[in-house]
Design a protein around this nucleic acid. Structure first.
Lengths: 190, 190
DNA sequence: TCGTAGATCTAGCGATGCTAGGATCCGGGC
DNA sequence: GCCCGGATCCTAGCATCGCTAGATCTACGA
């Protein structure tokens, strides 16, 4: 099937429709409601058509996760570029938490559900590398003498941990702001 | 059924057998292999018997999670008591990571799988409160002027984040040791 | 010894992810 | 214009899941 043909376009559209439907259903009703039959109904095709686009359910989660990572990257970048240089770590940390709160199902696809994505491995998708690059921009300046990449991993996981524990109700919500500010202060080592 | 009777004891034994079977299967084959039919086979009863002990599958995950939390608590306490005072934060942080690595399925039950446990809420199980108490013992001394409880939440979530991202292959494993050491250094604010 | 209450099992319901095999449609050669 | 072959799509079904209803069987007290 030559690229750019009508069939090719329709096929790509259908793939997008599946991903979008999965996102929408997951955000509104939770991931357990995202079933192959439900997706088929959303795109107005029969169930096996789904398997013409994705090998299995996990591949759909992975596709949504990739989309989420891309959006998270632009969200972080926007926050970084809008902030005064000395406020970049705060702004990006907050943007991370904001994103997770605004798109919990997307966040689940990225970090909680099994999605089969190879993050650290040799053939990690570019989207993942880009996202980490954005974190480097934000937090590498705080590394001081330490190894930058390691420092950024450390900072990211600290922010991530606070995000996931907070979102799952394991931390006191009323001090969320002060807790995140405290983390950034500690990371800045002022 | 009066407590202490033979029937009561047998019932309690069976409950324990279910929890143990769930743990064992989850550790050796992953949580998806833990099905009600499989558990029934393990305890040599028919499947509906499971529902005489647990309302649903999630309640079994919760029971395993509680068990895991208790074990994590003693693991952290042991590490704390064995360490020199100035090394307590390092020792406890490492113990946390060690525990997750040694019992990944247990850790999943506690933090990744839906278990319905109310962590932060008013009627959180005592086991959860005890576990957090252990974290307070370890990290509150680092709070300096800051609010202690908030500081401990911050430190815990940072360690937790590094643990979960590391275990799911999202951080470089070869620098795991230096990364955790770096976090503790930052938390100590030396 | 017998009747009843509780314990346990068999069987089944409505779902799930996923697949096989038949129908249908569409495009290119005569 | 027709016909044929391949791609595309659907119906139907398999095995398995969590969970439950109803029958059966066991054990204990009157």
């Amino acid at each position: 099937m030559e690229p750019g043909s009508r069939k090719e376009r329709e096929r790509a559209e259908r793939r997008r429709a599946i991903i979008t439907a999965a996102r929408d259903i997951a955000e509104s009703e939770g991931w357990p409601a995202v079933t192959t039959r439900r997706l088929a109904q959303s795109i107005e095709y029969s169930q096996p058509v789904i398997y013409g686009h994705f090998a299995n359910m996990q591949a759909i989660v992975a596709a949504v996760a990739i989309e989420g990572i891309v959006e998270l990257t632009v969200h972080l970048r926007r926050a970084r570029l809008a902030a005064a240089p000395e406020n970049i770590p705060d702004a990006v940390a907050w943007a991370y938490l904001d994103f997770a709160r605004a798109h919990p199902a997307l966040f689940d696809a990225m970090f909680t559900l099994p999605n089969g994505l190879d993050f650290g491995g040799p053939d990690a998708p570019v989207e993942l590398v880009d996202a980490f690059g954005e974190l480097i921009e934000a937090f590498a300046p705080l590394a001081k003498g330490e190894d930058q990449e390691t420092y950024v991993e450390m900072a990211w996981s600290a922010i991530h941990g606070q995000t996931v524990l907070g979102m799952s109700g394991r931390l006191r919500p009323q001090v969320a702001a002060e807790r995140m500010a405290m983390l950034v202060r500690v990371l800045k080592r002022e």
